[in-house]
Each structure stands twice: as structure tokens, then as C-alpha cells.
Simulated scan of single mutants.
Amino acid sequence: MRKKLFLLIGILYTVVLATVCLIKIKKLPEIGVSFGDKVFHFLAYMVLAFLWFNIFVDTFKLKEKKALIYAALFSIVFGIIIEVLQGTITTSRSSDVYDVMANTMGVFLTVIIVFIRNLITIKK
């Protein structure tokens, strides 16, 4: 049951993230940070990579190293595809290489956290 729920949450999160990135949003709340959009991208893709890492481990029974690689690649490619779609199929959005960089940095932080967690777990 937990595996199916986690898979459902991961798919739902991915669909919602894609939708939010591709629809026209009339007015976003101001957070008072000039790079707030990049912070959102960083955190959103950090969560995306973490969710898919856990899905690959729990649902698809991949070893953690392989699951981490797959989750990172999936998240980075997904982010690139979303940015391309923003520039090609939407009129209210534009592609931004800095968004891709923020996405990728969020994914890499997830990779680092999981890697360090595994190092600490192995040493115990």
C-alpha cells in the first residue's frame, strides 16, 4: 500500500509541477527576494528528485546507487523539457537557462544529501 501511495504522490507531484510551469499565472505573491523564482525551481526539483529516488528504490526495487542516478537524470531531463516547452508552446512563459541551472542544483543537492546519508548509515 505504501509503495502505491508513494508512486501516486510522485506522479501527482510531477504532473502538478509540469502544470504550474506551463500555465499562465496571473499574479504571483511577492516574497521580497529578487531571485525567488530560482529558489522555487531549486526546491521544487530537489523534492522531485527525492520523490523519484524513493519510488525507484521502494516501488521498482532498484539499488540505491542506480535509483539515485535514474532519479537525477529523470529530474534534470524533465526540467529541460519543461523549459523547452515554456519557450515553444506557451505565450506567457519563456525558456530560461538559469531555471535549468536552478533545477539541476536542486537535484544535485538531493544527490549529495542521499549520498552523505548513505555514508553515515554505512559507517554505523
Rank of each mutant, 00 (worst) to 15 (best):
residue 25 I to M: 15
residue 29 P to D: 12
residue 29 P to H: 07
residue 31 I to E: 14
residue 33 V to M: 15
residue 34 S to F: 13
residue 37 D to P: 05
residue 38 K to C: 06
residue 40 F to Y: 14
residue 41 H to S: 09
residue 41 H to P: 04
residue 42 F to M: 04
residue 48 L to C: 01
residue 53 F to I: 06
residue 53 F to N: 04
residue 56 F to P: 03
residue 58 D to R: 10
residue 60 F to Q: 02
residue 60 F to S: 00
residue 60 F to V: 09
residue 61 K to T: 09
residue 61 K to F: 10
residue 61 K to M: 11
residue 62 L to A: 09
residue 66 K to Q: 10
residue 66 K to Y: 09
residue 68 L to G: 03
residue 68 L to P: 02
residue 69 I to N: 10
residue 70 Y to I: 13
residue 70 Y to F: 14
residue 71 A to V: 03
residue 75 S to D: 02
residue 76 I to G: 00
residue 76 I to Q: 06
residue 77 V to H: 05
residue 77 V to D: 05
residue 77 V to M: 00
residue 79 G to S: 00
residue 79 G to R: 00
residue 79 G to C: 03
residue 80 I to T: 10
residue 82 I to G: 04
residue 83 E to D: 08
residue 84 V to P: 01
residue 86 Q to W: 02
residue 86 Q to T: 00
residue 89 I to T: 07
residue 90 T to W: 12
residue 90 T to S: 05
residue 91 T to S: 15
residue 91 T to Y: 13
residue 92 S to Y: 14
residue 93 R to C: 08
residue 93 R to L: 08
residue 94 S to N: 11
residue 94 S to A: 15
residue 96 D to A: 07
residue 100 V to P: 04
residue 100 V to T: 00
residue 100 V to I: 11
residue 101 M to E: 11
residue 104 T to H: 05
residue 105 M to W: 12
residue 108 F to S: 03
residue 110 T to S: 02
residue 111 V to D: 02
residue 112 I to G: 11
residue 114 V to W: 00
residue 116 I to L: 02
residue 116 I to K: 04
residue 117 R to G: 15
residue 117 R to F: 11
residue 117 R to P: 10
residue 118 N to D: 06
residue 118 N to I: 03
residue 119 L to S: 10
